[in-house]
């Protein structure tokens, strides 16, 4: 083994060691990236977007006449014979609590929301509170009641962090100021780009009592400090509460 071979051997060893070190660093960086890459759960592209979701109210939901009967939960009547079936309907009453057992949401920290100066829906100041859009229906009235919450704060998950994991059929109960409870079942959950938000679909009139749960989703834009999408859960009032 002459000196030139020795030099080549040293060189080769250096290259091998350097490669191993590089690979190790790369693996660590990848692991770190994966570890932090969880983010809030997102709805699958087709979660519950059944064709019937936008159609007429469920035939099983019987119409409940408007009665000045605060404190009563919606009750089914057998009146299927005449009239437009709008499903169960409650009188106006502000929401005071919300529970979504399947994603671990339960709070009585509800706040009122109006419109911001740019015409967009205000958001709750508090990352643990749920906001109700007061210019819309109250939960249980005809039309979509709007409840919104943050997906995360500056340093961790917020009240609606797991909203994207909600699935069709899940139950949402909303406690109301009049003592009644409005029970909703989730029809579908969708993600919309904020710059192509389907305003009328989310906020527009419906022919039954519905609920919208809104939070953020998609990619987080570090430049603007905002998520690019909104996650919206669509639900409707059911007559008979689940067990």
């Amino acid at each position: 083994m002459n000196s030139s071979t020795q030099r080549a051997g040293r060189h080769r060893n250096i290259v091998v060691v350097a490669s191993v070190v590089l690979a190790l660093i790369g693996a660590v960086v990848v692991l770190l990236g994966i570890h932090g890459a969880g983010g809030p759960p997102q709805p699958p592209a087709n979660a519950g977007q059944s064709a019937s979701a936008l159609a007429a109210p469920t035939p099983a939901a019987a119409g409940t006449p408007m009665t000045p009967n605060p404190g009563a939960s919606p009750s089914a009547t057998a009146n299927h014979t005449r009239g437009t079936d709008l499903g169960p309907i409650l009188i106006a009453s502000s929401p005071v609590a919300i529970a979504i057992p399947s994603i671990g949401v339960r709070t009585s920290n509800l706040v009122n929301l109006g419109l911001a100066s740019d015409g967009s829906l205000q958001v709750p100041r508090d990352f643990s509170s749920v906001g109700w859009y007061t210019a819309g229906p109250s939960p249980g009235q005809l039309g979509p009641a709007i409840l919104a919450g943050h997906v995360d704060s500056h340093n961790g998950p917020a009240i609606f962090y797991r909203l994207g994991a909600l699935r069709p059929g899940a139950r949402v109960t909303v406690g109301r100021k009049d003592g009644s409870t409005a029970t909703f079942t989730v029809d579908r959950i969708q993600r919309f780009p904020k710059d192509h938000f389907p305003t009328a679909l989310v906020y527009g009139s419906t022919n039954r009592a519905e609920l919208r749960l809104i939070t953020c989703g998609g990619s987080f834009d570090q430049k603007s400090g905002h998520y690019l999408d909104n996650v919206v859960a669509f639900a409707h009032l059911v007559a008979i509460p689940f067990n």
């Binding site: 983010g39 917020a158 987080f220």
Partner: peptide
């Protein structure tokens, strides 16, 4: 109606 989407996240738990 409210205009557009809403800013309901601060990014603290984002995939980023």
């Amino acid at each position: 109606m409210p205009a557009g989407g809403m800013q309901t996240g601060a990014g603290g738990a984002s995939s980023g």
